[in-house]
Design a protein around this nucleic acid. Sequence first.
DNA 1: GCGGATCAC
DNA 2: TATGGTGATCCGC
Length: 633
Amino acid sequence: MTPDRENEPPNPPQAVSDRPQPSRTPSDGDDAQKSLKYHLLGPSLTKAGQDAVDQQNVSEVIYNASKGSKFFNNEEVKDKNLTEKINRILSRKRQLEKLDLSHERRKADDYIAELEMGRDLSQVVIHIDCDAFYAAVEELDRPELKDVPMAVGKGVLTTCNYHARKFGCRSGMAGFVAMRLCPQLICLPLNFSKYSAKAEEVRSVLADYDARFESASVDEAYLNLTQYCQDHDLSPEDAVYQLRAEVHEKCKITVSAGIAANAKLAKIASNQNKPNGQFRIASDRQTIMEFMRSLPTRKVNGIGRVFERELDGIGIKTCGDIYAHRAYLSQLFGQKAFQFLMQCYLGLGRTKVQPAEDHERKSVGTESTFRELSAPDDLREKLRHIAEELEGDLKRTEYKGRTLCLKVKLHSYEVLTRQTAPPFAIHLADDLYKYGLPMLERLMKEIPNMKLRLMGLRATHIVSTKKAGIDFFGRHKATASSSKPPAALQTGKGTDDGEWEVWPEAEFEEAARQERDDEMNELEKLSQEQEKEAVSGINEEQWVCPICSLSQPPDDASFNSHIDFCLSRQTIKEAVKSTAPPESPKPQATLATRPPPAKRKAKRGRPKNETVSVDQGREKRRAFFQMPSTGSD
DNA sequence: GCGGATCAC
DNA sequence: TATGGTGATCCGC
């Protein structure tokens, strides 16, 4: 039985963890290849439709299709680093095993008792997930595609139907890899307005069951059916059957559902009987504990490929395995991860379901991938373009950023970020460019002949410019526009959260964006223009060159030439010192004086042996928890 | 606070 | 023959 074992990692993690030796073994090369192949299966391995697939074969095909590419090489490096990290975790665990852990065990038990006291089994929470949504919508227009393998998205699959999944195709997979797995695969271009309209249809049905439902993404939602079941004297199962039938009848697409006492369990449950199925985890402690006991860790939201392998490394394959290791977890993975894992073991999660509109955003950013570029002028032009994109996003969301983050991905797929704090909150393309450029120039100096495949800008520590209908300068804004964006979110427009199936797409945002732009009245536009002028005026007076600290002439052309001039006579180290807050001078100095190739290598190899003395003190971990609103904590 | 990493969607 | 974009969090330093 154990229906979930098909997604277990084929072998590599076990091969490592079962070995008692403290150090590496001769066969690590094989293990490395195995773990890499597992890694290459991608993040959506746990998606439905893969049960009957020969994952061994699929991973061979992916491996062979990717081998030798830059992408592949980067994955290999990441995988190797992870394996070393797991070895450090294991080593740390062996140390802990020699100690008296009764105190840690006691602390864990106390925490479990505390969590148990807060367990709430009174709510009926459901998670609704549309089946292969993009593909399903496309099939409505072209029914003949129902019977053949079909995917949506080119270059990379956004989603695919269940015929395609039988071949091992998955969302997130490179198109050319998918074609190797399934040469007859039909790939359709994305059509967001179509999917958006369909999503609204689905949401209007959901609203009848719980007016305060929560759109988790465009094709997912949480509902609290407690009241509905009471009012209509229905069992949760029957209510959900009815809901799914109604969606099918009105929208002509199928949805899967999970029913449980909290959102975490409901989410897991909705994946059990996909597609077009539902699954209930009964709301009694015994049933929940038994369900979790055999549940592979990866099935839990928040445990991805990396954490799964780390847990597997110390012998945790299912959520039930967590208990036996409770005394180690805090030391090995950190306090947050410890608490998170305890909740997984107990099957606890938030019971609160609410519209996500009150969720205050923390950053606004944009990034894009392009053909490899290395010419400084090209890179500057890209930055300029990204800055303009971001200005648009900041304008629409009505925010300014106190901090600006530059992100680049090298041709090797290595990702680097740099951030800077302008003297005031910025949102105009000119400013975004001005403060972004020194970071870019600095990177170009650090990495001679830098070749990029991606560039992005993100504003963080953002401040709203629309609070209480008063704008940044204290003027009253047009009321229509200041109340509109939240309303759009509330109706589940969801322009800010993740999108269908797996990937948010730029075009999708574009569509929603367009709608809101249309609603912006002339008065508002005028006000924006005035603001822009006012801000630029202030900028010119206040701005000083981050490199030489002299004030600058206002127009872009002279600004650019000045920056070029400045950089040509400044060392990178000095540029860094004046753009960024004071940093520890030693690493900068050594970096700046070391020859370029050595620099790159040193960077790459950093998480290795040399720094072990620092690292092994504590390998902390984990994210999660603060998914958009974890109620039950 | 910064930069790297992980995760979800 | 070319492997995504947006947002969030956590951790070590």
